[in-house]
Design a protein around this nucleic acid. Structure first.
Lengths: 138, 138
DNA sequence: TTCCTTGCAAATCGTTTGCAAGCGC
DNA sequence: GCGCTTGCAAACGATTTGCAAGGAA
């Protein structure tokens, strides 16, 4: 049976620019925001190219896809395990250190009889800034 | 200044049917699946009504919205805090007991200076069934 | 009677895809 | 030169919206 090799990803200026754009901010940008960032230096790049490269870079493990309730996919250049706080008012995201003990992961793996490849631990609430300036019902 | 009261939600047969549909399954259905379920007994309900009532019931706290990476919003009738295992191959979801100690929640709250209203702890991997029948690269 | 709710259809949003031309290796 | 990659525009799937008629309180 034929060994179908995966396509070897070439390095293009667009791909590098997309990666650099995500790495340059700590806002966990979505595709549209990455598009805006990249266009500053590369005005002809298309949105489709941004989408394609974001997926590809995530597959390669150079970026991490994250998503919060009711929001679109966002991208994170911090690929080491960590957690997030998402403000439901301003939609900003804060990175938090990993707090989930390895023992909890293993226990869950035993309970599910599945293999855990990654996890997402997302906290939702109001950030300190929005807590002051927003009514609690948003 | 005028106190604008929120609309008082009326009870309609459609709304009750949507809630019952989600409660009747443990598959964490999305809007389309709820629509299919409800139409069995109520063939004229519209998809828009299903969407509107799912949101409304979630606002009321009678349903919980959940979402996994690359998937659409789903609904869960289990509103008590618990966690999920999501199989990336068959997209089935398993409920897991809450494993996050209260102490971790409080510590995070202190770190973020925000108020944590809820959290989502989602594990991703292959379930025991898909682990056997699927190649690891999916 | 009030005004929330529905069904329908159209609109919108985020994302993906087909295709011909371009470019990395 | 081969074949991955791009820009463009069209297509797509999921969800939301405007509106007039219907129904709960």
């Amino acid at each position: 049976m034929a060994q179908d090799r995966p396509p070897s990803n070439r390095s293009t200026t667009q791909r590098a620019a997309v990666l650099r754009a995500v790495e340059s901010v700590h806002t966990h940008p979505n595709a549209e925001e990455v598009y805006r960032l990249v266009r500053k230096n590369m005005p002809n790049i298309s949105l489709a190219t941004v989408y394609r490269n974001l997926h590809l870079l995530a597959d390669e493990g150079k970026l991490r896809e994250v998503q919060f309730l009711g929001d679109v996919l966002r991208y994170d250049a911090m690929t080491d395990p960590h957690e997030h706080f998402y403000c439901r008012a301003c939609h900003r995201v804060w990175d938090l250190d990993s707090s989930l003990p390895e023992t909890v992961l293993r226990a869950t793996e035993r309970k599910t009889h599945g293999s855990i490849e990654r996890y997402a631990l997302d906290y939702y609430g109001l950030c300190s800034h929005c807590r002051k300036s927003t009514t609690s019902r948003d």
